[in-house]
Simulated assay, not measured.
Amino acid sequence: MPTLNSLTADNLLTEKEILTILDLAFKLKAQKKAGKRPQLLAGKNIALLFEKTSTRTRAAFTVAANDLGAFPEFLGKADIQFGTKESLEDTAKVLGRMFDGIEYRGAKQSVVDGLAQHSGVPVWNGLTDEWHPTQMFADLLTLKEHFGYLKGLTVCFVGDGRNNVANSLTIGCLKVGVNVVIIAPKQLQPAANIVDIAQQCSQISGATYFVSDNIEDVKGADAIYTDVWVSMGEENQYEERIKLLKNYQVNEALMTATGKKSVFLHCLPAFHDLETEVGKEVYHSYGLAELEVTDAVFRSKDSLVFDQAENRMHTIKAIMVASYHQL
């Protein structure tokens, strides 16, 4: 395939591009495990533009760039004048003159699209409110590592079915032939535009797409995926979300209800115990020691959450390499 150039949204990817990047990620991961660091981006300068906080995305891009011989530069919300004294277009043009690539993590999809339009260099979406493509690649790599194949698997996302992780997981899976089930209360089901894209992908690949509010529809799932009930920027909605989602918690009974040996997936962070400030606040306010997933499931041998976290780095490496080298 030609170079990927920018990666701003999952719906812009083809099946061939997804599978090629996954193959490259396998290769780069094996090389890293063998102690090899091919300098495929030697001398390139990478801007890491963060308007939202991060653990995995920031760490993964930083280590991936260093491993490949590039120089990452973190630019936090308070570090530059982007959005306050300087427009998106002007910022994009300035950064494009100085850097060879830009990662953006923030709220608005229009921002990452604008950076790609005006910067003249590859731009990668590290998360927006609509899409989270680097997470999708890590998820698919994890599934393929565990099962040995992708086409024909069934992934069931349980919880807030209209968030960015659910959107990216849905489109990425359907494009490569993985069946997708979204189980969420009606108020938190996918937006109409996402459903339209998903149905188009389903028709092309032959994978099935199903949205339900019935928790019993987990039956037959090879993987159960969940995410936090309250995303960044929605911190005032805990009471409402708990009421809506308390019956959608991923627990041992739900994992058993799949009727097969299913794996558990989560993009992290996860509220599965009381070892965080937020977890303690929720417990004191609502009496819940676990939210979207129980500690037993999170720590079980069927949980692949830390494989997913590591694979963020390997797939981000592949995405960046694909932006500069024809594959």
Score class of each variant (00 low, 15 high):
121 V>G: 04
230 V>P: 09
263 V>P: 04
305 V>I: 15
261 K>N: 15
228 V>W: 03
288 L>Y: 15
295 D>H: 13
61 F>Q: 06
34 A>G: 13
196 D>P: 01
55 T>R: 07
223 A>T: 09
232 M>L: 15
312 R>Y: 03
95 L>C: 09
140 L>T: 02
323 S>N: 06
120 G>L: 02
178 V>Y: 12
186 K>S: 15
77 K>G: 00
296 A>K: 15
229 W>L: 05
14 T>N: 01
215 I>N: 04
69 G>L: 03
181 V>D: 01
254 L>S: 10
210 F>P: 01
35 G>C: 06
27 K>M: 11
161 G>H: 05
164 N>W: 03
111 V>G: 04
280 K>M: 12
298 F>H: 12
273 D>W: 09
305 V>E: 02
181 V>S: 06
15 E>V: 00
34 A>I: 01
320 M>G: 07
31 Q>E: 15
99 F>H: 09
10 D>M: 15
141 L>I: 08
211 V>S: 09
54 S>Y: 05
44 K>H: 12
66 N>A: 12
166 A>M: 12
14 T>M: 05
52 K>P: 04
150 L>R: 03
81 Q>C: 09
49 L>G: 03
189 Q>I: 00
128 T>C: 12
162 R>E: 14
321 V>A: 02
135 Q>R: 08
273 D>A: 12
111 V>S: 11
225 Y>N: 04
315 T>W: 01
114 G>K: 03
299 R>S: 14
90 D>W: 04
12 L>N: 14
212 S>Y: 06
172 G>L: 08
51 E>R: 13
64 A>E: 08
52 K>T: 14
303 S>I: 00
55 T>C: 07
45 N>Q: 10
299 R>P: 07
57 T>N: 07
71 F>P: 01
3 T>W: 00
41 L>I: 12
159 G>D: 10
261 K>Y: 04
281 E>R: 14
152 G>F: 00
31 Q>W: 02
235 E>M: 08
144 K>T: 05
109 Q>S: 10
73 E>V: 13
249 Q>Y: 07
91 T>Q: 06
